[in-house]
């Protein structure tokens, strides 16, 4: 890599870090300020809504399989149903994910390989 490429790499790395850090610092200060003014520090409502909707959107984008064929969509559907079923029973994190991946893999394995 030449010097200009390194410079681009450093700019992106620093920029990405600042995108993650600065809004956090801003909110921390804003919460502290509100706490001194009103006695309670609460987040703006729009932000508390955007958090879960971002996670739901990440779920949506990650659902789309790399190979967009019927088998992949079927495996995805069954994988999510199994994940949900196990989550309903255990209310835990690890086991539902493991069972979901195994179900997804079995459908893919038996229908493709």
């Amino acid at each position: 890599m030449d010097m200009s490429m390194w410079l681009a790499l450093v700019s992106i790395a620093v920029g990405t870090y600042l995108i993650r850090l600065l809004p956090y610092l801003w909110m921390k200060r804003s919460l502290a300020k509100r706490q001194t003014e009103d006695g309670v520090g609460s987040m703006p409502t729009w932000l508390t809504i955007l958090g879960p909707t971002m996670i739901a959107a990440m779920f949506g984008t990650s659902l789309v399989p790399t190979h967009s064929d019927i088998v992949s969509w079927l495996a995805t559907g069954i994988g999510i149903l199994v994940t949900f079923g196990v989550w309903k029973r255990t209310r835990s994190m690890g086991m539902p994910i493991l069972c979901g991946v195994v179900a997804f893999g079995l459908v893919r394995f038996f229908l493709v390989f």
Binding site: M58, F59, S62, G79, I80, M93, P96, G100
Partner: peptide, 8 residues
């Protein structure tokens, strides 16, 4: 997706 699902 399974992780995001369990989280949401």
């Amino acid at each position: 997706p399974a992780l995001f699902f369990v989280l949401i």
